[in-house]
Amino acid sequence: MIVVPCPNCGPRNSSDLRPCGEITSRPDPATASLSEWRTYLYLRENPAGWVTETWYCRSGCRRYFTIERNTATNEIRDSEVS
């Protein structure tokens, strides 16, 4: 279990939080084609390396924030509240 640094609550066990995955950008649902929408829903870069991802501090401050995490080593860089 990795340690995730919540900007408000400090370093917490990842079980205190919910991982929300890589940052995605939500297309305009009124105009997005189905294919664009499903890219938003299902397709991720999933690199073996640095990724910017969102976490939710579900047991603490209840803020969503982003961190940079290396998926190969679990090294974590700065976090910030979204």
Binding site: V3, P5, C6, P7, N8, C9, G10, P11, D78, S79
Partner: peptide, 8 residues
């Protein structure tokens, strides 16, 4: 870790 979470 404490410095990174200075608000905490």
């Amino acid at each position: 870790r404490r410095a990174a979470a200075s608000r905490a």
